[in-house]
Structure formats: structure tokens, C-alpha cells
């Protein structure tokens, strides 16, 4: 019998209600995540990519239970977790951690690095006594390659990359199985970005972590990920192994995203696909295929019928083009 995947998300829905008017009635709903599903194995990296407003971060925060889903199921290690009480959910967070985008606002400016790292240890009762706690904190600093002297410092004494290392150390503290990196390197300089990516890759190998890597940057994702899921307006439009997605994108949106990845060689000739307009408002997503308003290959069927995520094997896309003869 197969072991269940570490994380499984089925038909996840999260709508944010917009309140307005005198009596606070519902003025509209933002379909941040609409019918989304994927699975993540132990030790695997899945990258969730898409432009801003596509609902990537909402997925991450919903999995952690920081916001409640409106529908669908989330399974961790074969147990359903989306309907747990707050107390049960709190206990489960020992197995799932998150690293946020902005290393300047994700650390409390008044807590020293030691206090910051001691917090998850104390919360989950992971260190008995001062000596053990101190040892664990030093281990964590070693793991993220920060000097042990850093323990006494306050966050503002560090650079962005160093702060992100502190945030990663905090996420590692409860010894989780899964870390969600919510744009964890997007705010960093290019060279620092590479260091953090390398650090995450090393930690994954060393600790067997599963990573859900949320990013808008396909170039950065390419070096780290095993699989890629491309999101558009709250839905996954294409999901598959890294090489397959990069070399044979099945969805026009993935194609367009890939054509926007900068190439080191300016002489390289390639077709640049520039999408017209902005991402439509998730308050009022287009009928049919949600991408049809910007798709260069749009035809009649796209405007009425939403395509399902389908395809051979593990590489699947949601596009009607695959049904056309000669596609």
C-alpha cells in the first residue's frame, strides 16, 4: 500500500468577502483560491508560481491554518487538518513552518535572535532546561550558517540576507517536515538570493524537508524545485516536473511566463510573448477559461467552457488547445 503524500490539497477554495455599505453587507467576493489541488511528497520541492494577485500566498497561509479555507480539504500525512480546532492546529504547526517574504517585518524588532529562536522551542516544549535550549539555538545558528555570537543581537543589526537566515532558523526550530517559503527570497539582492536558495537546498538534503516554494520568479525556482505548479487567478493552470514544464510548457500562460525569464546571453534568439493587459480582478473572474482574456490562442470554446486540469502522467495542464487536432 502506498504511503499517503506528506501534504495533499483537494479542491481548496478561499473567497475573501468585501464588506461595504452602511450595514456592512457583502459588497463582493474575491476568489483568491478557487478549486485548487496538489500533492507534495516528503523531501520534495514544489514551486507555486504566478503573478501577484494569483492567490499563491493565500494557499500557503490556508495550509498553515492562519486563515480558514471556505471549501476543500487539506491532508497532512493522511490526516485531514482543515477543520481542526485552533488548539489542535497549533500543535500541528510543529510539523509545518513558514518563511515570509520580508525579512524586515517578519522578525519582532524588540526580540533578540536568542529570544526569537527560543520561542518555538518553548511553545512546543522542545528543550528542557537552559543548557539544552542554548545548545539547540546554537545548532540552529550553525545550520543556517550564522555565527553563534549573533544570538545576542537584535534583528536591526543584521542585513536582509542574515535576517532571512534567522527566519529560516526559526522555521527549522520545531524540526518541521514541511516549510512553506512565501516569496522567501524575492526581497533579497541577487547574490544573497543565491546564497539563501543554496542554503534551502542544502537543508532540504540534510533534513529531508519538503518545501512549498511560493514565488513569482521562474528563474529562481528552476534551480531549486522538483516540480512546478503555475497559478493563474486562484487556479493551477499547469503542474508537472520541472524539466517537462520548462522544456515543453503545455499552457499558453506558462509559455508566456517562461518567455519573460531573463537569459544570460543577449544574443539568444527566442520568441518573446508579451501578454496584453493586467491580470483580471479576482472579484470578477472571466467566464470559461480564466485566461481567455489575455490568451494569444483564444478560440470560441475558451470563452464558455472552463478547461479541466488534464494530461498524460504527471504533467498536466488546463487548456482546450490539447484537444485541437494538430496541437
Amino acid at each position: 500500500m502506498n504511503k499517503p503524500p506528506l501534504l495533499e490539497v483537494n479542491r481548496l477554495v478561499k473567497h475573501f468577502l468585501i464588506r461595504g455599505g452602511l450595514l456592512g453587507g457583502i459588497a463582493g467576493r474575491v476568489r483568491a483560491v478557487d478549486d485548487l489541488g496538489f500533492a507534495l511528497e516528503r523531501g520534495e520541492t514544489l514551486s507555486l508560481v504566478g503573478e501577484s494577485g494569483s492567490g499563491k500566498s493565500t494557499v500557503g497561509r490556508t495550509i498553515l491554518g492562519l486563515i480558514r479555507p471556505d471549501g476543500g480539504e487539506i491532508w497532512l500525512d493522511g490526516a485531514r487538518i482543515d477543520q481542526l480546532s485552533r488548539a489542535r492546529m497549533r500543535a500541528l504547526r510543529q510539523r509545518m513552518q513558514i518563511v515570509f517574504q520580508d525579512p524586515f517585518s517578519s522578525l519582532n524588532p524588540r526580540l533578540s535572535v536568542r529570544d526569537c529562536l527560543a520561542e518555538p522551542l518553548a511553545n512546543f516544549g522542545l528543550a528542557r532546561g537552559k543548557a539544552e535550549r542554548e545548545r539547540r539555538i546554537f545548532d540552529l545558528l550553525d545550520q543556517v550558517m550564522l555565527p553563534r555570537a549573533a544570538a545576542d543581537r537584535l534583528p536591526h543589526e543584521f542585513s536582509g540576507g542574515q535576517r532571512q537566515r534567522i527566519a529560516i532558523a526559526r522555521a527549522l526550530a520545531p524540526r518541521p517536515d514541511l516549510i512553506i517559503c512565501d516569496e522567501a527570497v524575492s526581497a533579497l539582492d541577487v547574490s544573497v538570493k543565491a546564497q539563501i536558495i543554496n542554503l534551502l537546498a542544502d537543508l532540504q538534503k540534510e533534513l529531508g524537508l519538503a518545501l512549498l516554494f511560493i514565488s513569482h520568479d521562474l528563474a529562481i525556482v528552476e534551480h531549486l524545485t522538483h516540480r512546478i505548479a503555475v497559478m493563474y487567478l486562484g487556479q493551477i493552470v499547469e503542474i508537472g516536473p520541472r524539466d517537462a514544464v520548462f522544456s515543453r510548457p503545455q499552457h499558453p500562460y506558462t509559455e508566456a511566463l517562461l518567455s519573460a525569464v531573463p537569459m544570460p546571453d543577449p544574443e539568444t534568439k527566442r520568441r518573446r510573448i508579451v501578454l496584453a493587459g493586467d491580470i483580471p480582478s479576482p472579484r470578477n473572474p472571466p467566464q470559461g477559461c480564466r485566461f481567455h482574456t489575455r490568451c494569444p490562442y483564444v478560440f470560441d470554446r475558451c470563452r464558455v467552457e472552463a478547461p479541466a486540469l488534464r494530461g498524460p502522467g504527471t504533467h498536466r495542464a488546463a487548456c482546450h488547445l490539447d484537444a485541437l487536432p494538430g496541437a
Binding site: 504547526r93 513558514i98 515570509f100 519582532n108 520561542e119 518555538p120 511553545n123 527566519a167 522555521a171
Partner: peptide, 8 residues
């Protein structure tokens, strides 16, 4: 949010 996420 990070503090909530790490079980506080």
C-alpha cells in the same frame, strides 16, 4: 503571523 505560525 510568524509568531502564531510557530505556535505562540
Amino acid at each position: 503571523e510568524a509568531a502564531i505560525a510557530c505556535g505562540t
